[in-house]
Design a protein around this nucleic acid. Structure first.
Lengths: 157, 157
DNA sequence: TAATAGTTGACTATTTTGCTAGGTTAAGTA
DNA sequence: TACTTAACCTAGCAAAATAGTCAACTATTA
């Protein structure tokens, strides 16, 4: 389970889609404009998301993309997995040359860690994020603490 | 909080170091051989780990690297943070052009997610992984159930 | 002093990332 | 039917990240 900007783009776009496609399909052009992601890059990402069975394209005027499933049935882990390469499980690949030595043990260890993160992200759905988004907006309008939010995130990295 | 092969190399090397440096310092040459990571790449990674105050280099014959702190006082998040670039917090960077629009909201959302993963990894120390490693070895010798290990991780959090 | 081993910097090759440019195809609309 | 829209596809490219080589240097110890 990798965690890069590519995956972030995909998650961001999916949140946008889930938020705006409740009435009619959303064009990638719109998402590109709102999220400031290049259209062609979005096309590449959505080609993968479509092959993974998460979104469906509707051609022609009034067309665009929509979710195949409910937002509550799509989790973050599968979005990231869909756009990322299948992660090299090399260095012990099959059992042929794997001697279960120190090298492979730490490798297993990392895989286990990666697996835990996957489980964690599998537990978060698009709907969860949308809900958080809504809560955030309300909180901001009510308390006018836009700056406060930044501080919280700023301490993140 | 990014999660790439670079971070994996660093964590893997640190596990190796923690495991073998209990008696005397460990040379990068040894780690490179055991973990099949190029020596020079390890040098780059350890230069960062050293600047981050996690390891200490001992020069001369019988030298090598050792941990600055106890394995139980070094967590996975800081290892990864040490070797990774400080992650572009662009796209809303300062407060100047940030309008708290939809674009920035999803951005915030991702940062929040990233923060949660960081918190999660901060809760796992090198010592924790070493302990799991030991348990793993014993389990494998006793039961020959390589697959079982994955289950352990699955129930860990 | 000689050997060991860390430290540093410059340089290279490959892969991934993010994007541009150009098409084709399907579905609506005039 | 012709036109428009927007998905869908392909090739290629520049920048960055990744992974590594090579060579010189410094500090320590035997």
């Amino acid at each position: 389970m990798r965690l890069t900007t590519k995956g972030r783009y995909a998650v961001t776009a999916m949140i946008d889609l889930a938020f705006h496609s409740q009435i009619k399909p959303v064009t990638l052009t719109d998402i590109a404009a709102r999220q400031t992601i290049s259209l062609s890059y979005l096309e590449q990402l959505f080609a993968r998301l479509r092959r993974a069975g998460m979104v469906k394209g509707v051609r022609g005027p009034g067309g665009g993309y929509k979710l195949c499933r409910k937002a509550s049935d799509i989790n973050i882990a599968e979005i990231i997995a869909a756009v990322d390469e299948p992660l090299d499980s090399t260095k012990c690949g099959g059992e042929a040359n794997c001697q279960k030595d120190q090298s492979c043990l730490t490798h297993d260890l990392w895989m286990g860690l990666s697996e835990q993160i996957r489980n964690y992200l599998e537990g978060i759905s698009l709907a969860d994020l949308l809900e958080k988004n809504r809560v955030q907006e309300v909180a901001k309008r009510q308390h006018h603490e836009a700056q406060h939010t930044i501080e919280i995130y700023r301490h993140a990295e």
